[in-house]
C-alpha cells in the first residue's frame, strides 16, 4: 500500500544498530577533544586548579606563605626556592600556588553571577516587548559606556576594599556584555521556525524559553563566560595591583606584581613569575573558550 517505503528498508534497519542515546555533553566533549589547542588549555587549567585545590598540602599557609623571613630576602630561583623569594623572604612558588586559590574562585564566582544576572536581563530584553527591550538595553548601554575596570574601581572605592566588595564590583562590571550577548542570541532564535513549530504543538512560553531558546542560545554565552573569566582574573589582579583588591599579606597575583615592582631591576623573579601565572591562566582559558566555540555547534560533524 505504502509506495514510499523501499522494501529493503525495514530489513536494513535491523542490520544497522540503533545509535546509542548519547547526551549533548558527550558529543561536545568528542568535538573538543579533536582541538589540540583547546585540550592544551584544558590541561593547563586543570593543573592550575588542582594545584590551587591542594595548595595547603603543598605549602603551609601560615609558616611558608605569609611568614616573613629576613634571612631569605630576594633569593634568586634555586633548589630550595624554585622560583626565588620576595622582598620579605617568602617563597614565590608557594605564594603563586596560594594566589590561585584567591583569583580563580573569585573569577568563577563573579562570572557565574554575571552570567545568571546578565543572562536573565538579556533574555527578558530579547523575549519581551520592544519597550522593555529599549529600557533595559539603554541602561546597559550606560554601563557599557564606562570602561569595566573603571567601573570596578569606582564601586570598590565607594564600598571600601574587601573580598565581598571586589566580588560585587567585578560582577556588576561584567553584567552588561552578557546581557547583550544573550539578548542578541535570543532575538535571533525567537524568529526561528522551530519556535513557531513549538508554539504550534502547544508549548507555552516557559517551555519555549527553557526547552528551545536557552539550549540554543547557550553556546555564545559559555564561550563568552570562559573568555570573561580570563578578563575577570586580570581585573582582580589589576585592582589588587592598585591596592583595591586583596589586601596584604594575603597572596594575590596582582598584589605580588605590585609588591615586586620596586625590586624589578635586581630581583626580576618577583614580578616575572606571578606575571607568567596570570598569563598562563588567561591563555589556557582563552584557548579553551575558542575550542568550545567550535565544539558547541551541533551542526559540525563529529
Amino acid at each position: 500500500m505504502n509506495t514510499t517505503i523501499i522494501p529493503s528498508k525495514n530489513q536494513r534497519s535491523e542490520i544497522i544498530p540503533e545509535k546509542k542515546k548519547k547526551s549533548q555533553l558527550v558529543s561536545i566533549w568528542k568535538r573538543l577533544r579533536k582541538n589540540k589547542l583547546a585540550v592544551a588549555g584544558l590541561v593547563i587549567l586543570t593543573f592550575i586548579i588542582l594545584s590551587a585545590a591542594f595548595a595547603n598540602a603543598l605549602f603551609d599557609y601560615n609558616t611558608v606563605v605569609i611568614q616573613q623571613n629576613a634571612a631569605d630576602r630576594l633569593q634568586p630561583p634555586s633548589a630550595k626556592h624554585w622560583l626565588g623569594t620576595d622582598e620579605l623572604g617568602r617563597d614565590i612558588l608557594a605564594r603563586i600556588v596560594h594566589g590561585a586559590r584567591v583569583s580563580i574562585p573569585i573569577a568563577f564566582t563573579t562570572i557565574l553571577i554575571a552570567t545568571i544576572v546578565g543572562g536573565l536581563i538579556g533574555a527578558i530584553s530579547g523575549y519581551g516587548s520592544k519597550r522593555v527591550d529599549n529600557i533595559i538595553m539603554r541602561i546597559m548601554d550606560i554601563f557599557l559606556a564606562i570602561p569595566g575596570i573603571l567601573l570596578s574601581i569606582a564601586i570598590v572605592a565607594a564600598l571600601g576594599p574587601s573580598l565581598r566588595n571586589l566580588l560585587i564590583a567585578i560582577s556588576i562590571a561584567n553584567i552588561p556584555p552578557f546581557a547583550r550577548i544573550v539578548r542578541a542570541s535570543v532575538l535571533s532564535i525567537r524568529n526561528e521556525e522551530f519556535i513557531e513549530a513549538a508554539r504550534a504543538i502547544g508549548a507555552n512560553d516557559l517551555r519555549i524559553i527553557f526547552k528551545h531558546i536557552i539550549p540554543n542560545s547557550m553556546a555564545p554565552v559559555i564561550v563568552q563566560a570562559t573568555l570573561c573569566i580570563a578578563g575577570s582574573i586580570l581585573e582582580i589582579a589589576a585592582l589588587s595591583f592598585i591596592g583595591l583588591g586583596i589586601q596584604p599579606p594575603a597572596p594575590e597575583w596582582g598584589a605580588m606584581l605590585s609588591g615586586g615592582r620596586q625590586y624589578i631591576r635586581y630581583a626580576w623573579w618577583i614580578c616575572a613569575f606571578p606575571g607568567i601565572a596570570i598569563m598562563l591562566t588567561i591563555l589556557s582559558l582563552n584557548l579553551l573558550g575558542d575550542g568550545l566555540r567550535d565544539a558547541l555547534d551541533p551542526k559540525l560533524k563529529n
Binding site: 549533548q24 526561528e192 521556525e193 522551530f194 513549530a197 504550534a200 504543538i201 526547552k211 539550549p215 540554543n216
Partner: peptide
C-alpha cells in the same frame, strides 16, 4: 491550546522547523 490537538501544521523547511538540540 485545546484546538492544537485537532489542528496541526507541517512546515516548509524541515531543517529550520526542528530544534537542532533535540533528538
Amino acid at each position: 491550546h485545546d484546538l492544537r490537538k485537532d489542528l496541526q501544521i507541517i512546515f516548509q523547511d524541515p531543517f529550520a522547523s526542528l530544534n537542532p538540540r533535540m533528538s
